[in-house]
Nucleic acid binder design. Structure first.
Lengths: 108, 108
DNA sequence: ACAATACATAAGTGAAGACTTATTTGTTGG
DNA sequence: CCAACAAATAAGTCTTCACTTATGTATTGT
């Protein structure tokens, strides 16, 4: 029994193709659950569950307007993912830098 | 029955915390299966299975040397992930740019 | 050659997860 | 108000998956 970090939630949320497809759709603009349900070949509850998952991961935000709930992408939602990547990317760049330094030193 | 794309494999591979931990460990340097098994609290077969998964996703590469198999990070392995992110990040930046253009236009 | 070491594969198990249908909860138009 | 619509939640099913133990496959040292 372990609390999952936001980072883990983001990775888990994006691991599912349907969820990524929903997220991608939302990057093209706000949409109500109804619209998303029409757009994909899964039931309305499935869509709602995916949205709840994305919301839990901080990737998406819901806004009620009358009978509809409009979802939109949360701008900083991908930050944990970006941070994770840049962290390890930075490591490689650092290694490359150090390699270059080494090579430069050998030139002299 | 559906082929899964490399993109999907990458997302799936990184969705598991143990697998991310193994990947992260490998960014700190090449390691044999034995070393990784010692490092984490799971069995050797579990480690091998995770490595096979990471390899299938193009995130990792194995090199046999005698009885040992040394694994290392595949430098371009994260590219699908980076591409995916920048694709949608580009969309937001574009939106921000257009918003700024609009605001600039209103100044005149 | 063979015992030992390192790793991979096989097979089984329990938990998590992605769906479904059925129902409940909000919210409005008539 | 209430019939109808929109979305969320409940409950059940079937699959996927992360592990385990057991076994197979390479590759050495002696």
């Amino acid at each position: 029994m372990q609390i999952d970090s936001l980072e883990n939630k983001v990775f888990l949320a994006l691991a599912d193709p349907s969820r990524r497809a929903i997220f991608e759709s939302l990057t093209r603009g706000e949409a109500a659950v109804k619209d998303l349900t029409a757009q994909f070949d899964i039931s309305q509850p499935a869509v709602s569950q995916h949205l709840a998952n994305l919301k839990e991961a901080g990737l998406v935000r819901g806004r009620r307007e009358g009978r509809h709930v409009y979802y939109r992408v949360e701008p900083d939602g991908l930050k944990p993912l970006v941070d994770w990547i840049t962290h390890y990317r930075a490591f490689w760049i650092d290694r490359v830098d150090r390699l270059e330094q080494l090579l430069d030193g050998m030139d002299e």
